[in-house]
Design a protein around this nucleic acid. Sequence first.
DNA 1: ATGGCTAAAAGATTTAGA
Length: 281
Amino acid sequence: MRLATWNVNSIRTRVARTVEFAVREDIDVLAMQEIKCKPEQFPYAAFEEAGYQVEVHGLNQWNGVAIASRLPMSDVRTSFDGMPGFAKGHEGPDAPLEARALGVMVDGVRVWSLYVPNGRSLNDPHYTYKLHWLEALKTSTAAELAATPGLPLALVGDFNIIPFDSDNGDPDIVEGVSTHVSPPERAAFFALADAGVTDVVRPLLPEGYTYWDYQRLKFPRNEGIRIDFILGSSSFADAVTGASIHREERKGEQPSDHVPVVAEIDLGGADDDGDLPMIFS
DNA sequence: ATGGCTAAAAGATTTAGA
């Protein structure tokens, strides 16, 4: 199975190149973030014509997550257990949930498409919301893996955290001043390993940015950052056979500011064509 | 001026992104 994650930054603006990418790269499951639309606004037809069904979770023009798949999806969830909400003037437990998580089962794998809150600034309520959100993600992931030992599970998406200094090529993002690089954010990201998931792309691709700001010629200057990840449980990680970061998708007409990240996994059973194992053919 | 792009909304500016 070829699994991709991509913050598309409005699916309605970029549906053509999104579907073209999925087809060209032979993607079986594409997790999207920042679709910026409600389900009734989602361009389903373009995906269906290319052989994908789509699950969508969007509440308004902000955030929004979706998963397109060539394979049947089941057990769809629009939030993880304990996920906190956020709204202006509401930080408490009564705050409404945002559309930042979508989970499905596909081909025996639990896939979560995640759009981690930005944080906005170090002293903003959105920053503490981000940390709480990540803590709840860790707890619910640990619980999901405890409930089904050996479950192949992937947390994929835009984590809005730059784990290492080597992932930060943007001189405007500075530790002590900016979000994405603060010690608490990095600690929250690395703590996901305690729940049993690790970055399956980095061992194969130690270098590579996934985002370049639209402003100030960041892409031509290659002042990017690495914030989009595929984290896998141990059984998922053990099945990874390849990975790629598609920098070329930042070029051309109306690109997203993020590029896709892809992992290929082989969990055994039927081969990639869905046919019987090679020994029978 | 110090947020310079980009996108969406019942908008003609504001909110959000990172």
